[in-house]
Nucleic acid binder design. Structure first.
Lengths: 355, 355
DNA sequence: CTGAAAGCGCTAACAA
DNA sequence: TTGTTAGCGCTTTCAG
């Protein structure tokens, strides 16, 4: 166990010292430089020496210490990805895509979830900066721009994805929520709904420009239609969970409000609404039409068959990651400001109305 | 911009150098030691000096370089968590819980997904070892024990969670799948099913002892029952996706096989089966009973109402993380081998049979 | 209360 | 083809 040379020198908390280049060098009777270069392909080391070194490295279970390498190199080739909720599969999609692209380009991605808390967000970003990330992809949850100021003054390359807060004016790749709102409400109108409820998620997302843009867009559709005939649109503060949709349905019942068209900010909320309505004896797609957002994998089941708006999160993540790495490598000067157009997937929850 | 001292010395790929302790020391007219100590609480630095240092640090947007700190300290206080699929919410639960516990104990968690690929798994673990993790939590996907050998010979503290492969004999906290199988099949029997199909996921999970243990357990229940009366259990190779369940239903139809009780390895597969059966005119909970595993959040909806086996993944992750850190800190000598008992949640998909 | 010096593991420049 | 030296940013002696 020759490589445990510093065992006595310093007692670490874990029971043994990892082998280093120094250990290999000593055993192989070569310099540390030779060892270091033996791990690279195009270098000057003779095959014989390299083989000897590699064998010993394997023997000792040697793994290069990235802390040391990064410190020496002055860079980490690592980017950070801040998501809101790791339990939500579409964040998973984004992270997966990002990691894949980064890998192809020689970068590593570290990610962490804020759980919609501004405090967590601040903590995460701080830690990432300490970890010397070279760029950051952000799903903001902070309602104020205080975290963003940290990003700005750190001077780190960054990009916002999914949806952006009102205060943000940096580069972004987000989904076109105004268009999503248009798609949904126009569809409800087209199939005959004249009494529409929009269940937004102000509580969770109220400070995001997307929500406001969506409302404006919907109001706009509404106004252009209302010229021709009488139609009603009400907005409700709901949420993004099954329970949110159920709660909002109950509130409407209490308030004696009835709608023939419902648009929810995500599929789970829509499923919650459908569930509450069903318990009340109403048939989705027959007594009312309903549209969600996210195209959850279960929405396609016949038992649910929920019309939904599909957003290409992988595309968003791909563009963002490539952009970020381009910026890091000075291959990109132009600030990106991109909206991805979503797609409407029509299912039974809104198709029975059609004639 | 005094801290850009090395701007000319070395041209980094990113446009500017981050400030270091050296920069702060120079501006504050103190030693690097003083700066370093100013960031710690219990030390010898005068309040005046500390304030000066802290102000300058803030001014320069200073973030300590963790690579340097870790290198110097000889440890990273970081653990790795290898999951299989980031899009599956229950891995999210585990990661979230682990991160929270680690944080409380002063550790950081880095996680990565293998996507059920042994090759990815190997790559991830290798990278984590280079990143100098001090311990690792594993959801294995490799069918052979080659990756585990890397772990073993690296000598790193480790623990397996969720489910363990046959070849693995190290510490683990997994769910009691034999008991889960017992719960499910016993329940189906109790409500009157005498013709039961088990849709397992050998393709995805065949090399895991849990699957085998579950089969044994089910066979055991089966044998003890069959003494008293005629009852049939068939096993199918299905999968973990909605499409798996649908496909298996179709296969059964083709083979002219009919069952009154179905047990699937997860809820998605069960939903797929229900979906295919519904299209065929069969009513779940009426024409047949069905039980899943995982207690997906949508399983509770009336439209689905799927009986399921709930596994406390947070508990698993909590125990594993605490154990791992205990081992790292030499507070734990005993190898942990723990099974968590799951719970049966009965819903309509299997309750109509009851009288 | 403060500073000088050494060294964590690695690699790039420079010598041989 | 190989070795020597220096230094990345930080912290920990040890000496003032």
């Amino acid at each position: 166990m020759g490589f445990m040379r510093s065992q006595e020198k310093k007692q670490k908390i874990n029971s043994f010292q990892k082998p280093t280049i120094k250990d290999i060098a000593r055993i192989a009777n070569v310099s540390e430089t030779t060892v270091s270069l033996s791990f690279k392909n195009n270098s000057r080391i003779s095959d014989k020496t390299r083989q000897k070194v590699l064998n010993i490295a394997k023997e000792l279970n040697y793994f290069p210490n990235l802390s040391a390498r990064d410190l020496r190199a002055g860079r980490t080739k690592t980017i950070g990805f801040v998501i809101n909720d790791i339990k939500n599969p579409f964040y998973g999609s984004m992270v997966r895509t990002s990691e894949q692209i980064a890998l192809e380009r020689g970068y590593e991605v570290i990610f962490s979830e804020s759980q919609w808390s501004g405090k967590n967000e601040k903590f995460i970003i701080n830690r990432m900066l300490q970890n010397q990330i070279e760029g950051i992809i952000l799903c903001f949850s902070e309602k104020t721009e205080s975290t963003y100021k940290t990003i700005l003054s750190s001077g780190i390359p960054h990009i916002v994805v999914d949806t952006k807060p009102d205060y943000y004016h940096g580069p972004y790749v987000i989904n076109d929520s105004a268009f999503a709102g248009y798609l949904a409400v126009k569809h409800l109108y087209d199939i005959g709904c004249r009494n529409i409820a929009v269940l937004n998620a102000k509580e969770d997302l109220g400070y995001f420009s997307s929500v406001n843009e969506m409302e404006h867009s919907i109001s706009h559709v509404f106004n252009s239609i209302t010229q021709k005939e009488r139609i009603q649109i009400d907005f409700y503060d709901s949420g993004l969970k099954i329970s949110s949709g159920m709660k909002t349905y109950d509130e409407m019942q209490k308030a004696q409000k009835f709608y023939d068209g419902i648009f929810c900010m995500n599929d789970l909320c829509a499923m919650g609404y459908m569930n509450a309505a069903l318990r009340d004896g109403l048939q989705p797609g027959k007594d009312f039409a309903i549209v969600g957002v996210d195209d959850n994998e279960v929405s396609d089941l016949d038992m649910i068959s929920l019309t939904s708006i599909n957003i290409d999160y992988e595309e968003i993540s791909k563009i963002a990651t490539n952009y970020l790495i381009d910026v890091i490598e000075n291959k990109q000067e132009q600030k990106i400001e991109k909206m991805i157009r979503p797609e409407l997937i029509i299912r039974n929850s809104s198709s029975f109305f059609q004639t």
